[in-house]
Design a binder for these strands. Structure first.
Lengths: 198, 198
DNA sequence: TGACTACTGTACCAATCAGTCAAGCGTTGA
DNA sequence: TCAACGCTTGACTGATTGGTACAGTAGTCA
């Protein structure tokens, strides 16, 4: 009765969802087994170091997805404004308008932070750096771009928390809309378009 | 060997710290006992419904602290600008510049959300409402005040996540500084002072 | 002094935890 | 056809989980 899951990578999407929903400590092997359809034996065959290795695999996949879908266009896209707009839309879809938790953010807040500190840091550093690069390509100066990109990433994380707390996806969407305005760049002056509207 | 802890309330601060550091699932009774200096017997004497009741007691105390120190001045203070500045400073101190997690936010993200949904919701609704009231007293219109207050609360939560992820309290402080600018109100025009600086 | 209440330590419980292991299965290459 | 390999199963372990029960101890009031 072998080979019901062709690849180790087939399990990663399920693993990600389990860790998102239950956290690192809350995701028991029983739960993981149910979600992936894999027995303990298979799980430990694919991930000899247990849950920790599973989370690392999930984090690696998340990092890759963001690199391809978000960071890379931000850094290298020919139209900075378009890349930023795409980032916000991709992000909103990815987090299902705040109904889906950011696993990296959740791990950062929990006491598991130390265990995955490097991966967590890499994720956010790459995001802020990539967004900053796009903002600089818009014509902003480096320092302003830095502050603005930090603020945007932080707002997305906060929007997930608040929209879940209020159980209202509209909160998340409003935050994304506001970021669209704040990150847009028009003409020669240094600020975004948001100053007079908010 | 009775009465080593005079009051049930003496344990709540320790309980809060344990749940902050380890989360709901991660905070085992062994850990809780160590942190509070109480054995299981005492713990279940004070909190007959176990961990759930402990968290509820902690949430009630947090709610009370924010009501007295943050929400009430925002709603009723005679100087709205001063009340807002106080809120930001009190908040920065309370969260130790992002080194300390927001328990309510952490619970909102974890799968324990449903269990404490009402308390979590109350906390954030009260915060946003109180800040909105202060912004309206500044002279802003209700809708703008609503968006701005939502944005501010969300930014604080996001700042905790990001500053912990990057292990850099300066990130949190920059977010607070930015909120100072964004929430300040000068003269007759409708926006904050932040438009041209960022 | 003697009851009564409030608190405490500890033994105990069933359930669940992460992790191990040997045996068995199906597929593959020779 | 058969051995080797990769995957799977499920029973098992020892530790830990949240929670209960209860005997006892200290303080308080009469």
């Amino acid at each position: 009765m072998a080979r019901m899951v062709a690849e180790r990578s087939d399990a990663i999407a399920s693993l990600a969802e389990v860790f998102r929903e239950h956290g690192y400590e809350g995701a028991s092997l029983a739960l993981i087994g149910k979600a992936t359809g894999l027995g303990k034996g298979s799980l430990y065959h694919f991930f000899p170091n247990g849950k920790e290795e599973m989370v690392r695999a999930v984090l690696a996949e998340i990092e890759q997805w963001f690199e391809d879908s978000v960071y890379s266009p931000l850094r290298d896209g020919d139209d900075a404004n378009a890349a930023i707009a795409t980032m916000l839309n991709e992000t909103a879809t990815y987090f299902r308008s705040g109904r889906r938790v950011c696993l990296v953010g959740a791990l950062a807040v929990a006491n598991t932070r130390d265990l995955f500190a490097q991966a967590i840091r890499r994720y956010f550093v790459a995001w802020v750096d990539a967004l900053q690069a796009a903002l600089v390509r818009q014509g902003r100066d480096a320092e302003q771009a830095r502050l603005l990109s930090e603020d945007a990433v932080l707002a997305i994380q906060g929007a997930i928390v608040l929209s879940r707390a209020l159980d209202d996806p509209a909160v998340f969407q409003r935050a994304i809309d506001q970021l669209h305005a704040r990150l847009a760049f028009n003409e020669g002056h240094g600020g975004g378009a948001s100053g007079s509207t908010l």
